[in-house]
Amino acid sequence: MIEMKEVYKTYPNGVTALNGIDIHIDQGEFVYIVGPSGAGKSTFIKLMFREERPSKGSIIVNDRDLAVLKKRKVPHLRREIGVVYQDFRLLPKLTVYENVAFALEVIEETPKNIKRRVMDVLDQVRLKNKARFLPDELSGGEQQRVAIARAIVNMPQVVIADEPTGNLDPETSWEIMHILEEINQRGTTILMATHNREIVNTIRKRVIAIEDGSVVRDEHRGDYGYEI
């Protein structure tokens, strides 16, 4: 469950990114975050896994209040949240397997469990046969699937995807969406910031639109709603 109450964020340089956000997202929901560039989507996403702190208000993610969360507790929060970026953020010198295993190594999981979990998620994203490949040897869509595998390998309750299809061609984008939907069907909350109108209008989910740091629209089975 994610809940934001009266959340404001002003950066030290005086820019106000969020201007009183109130939202409630239940466990297992699939939510698109839409809005023009610079509207506050990135800040919204960053607040979710405590890369930024709110200037005012409270953010509850999985029963933790991020506004007062102690610094040393932040790693534990992040283990319950998987994050996927537009630019994949894979380590180029590690194989697909190692990139995914990395997420379990840093939380000091046992080698036996690591192997089992990694093969499991690689199967889920249909990359089991490319486990030994390096990221450079994969297509963009495959790289994004590796990133998704890494995000879900420690079974987070929430997956946050920041424009996961931003660098991909339409066909590959659908592939990624199907994988995200599958993950969602297993009960994981998915928060996806996107500019992809076609996807939002086709795979209908809850849509939260942010403009000038405020929520201007929050609809179940909503549409993209912006003319590009």
Partner: peptide, 16 residues
């Protein structure tokens, strides 16, 4: 730095 960023992203502690 990239590696450290990813470590933090997936929940590595500062000690680690």
């Amino acid at each position: 730095q990239k590696e450290i960023g990813i470590m933090k992203l997936v929940g590595a502690t500062n000690m680690f």
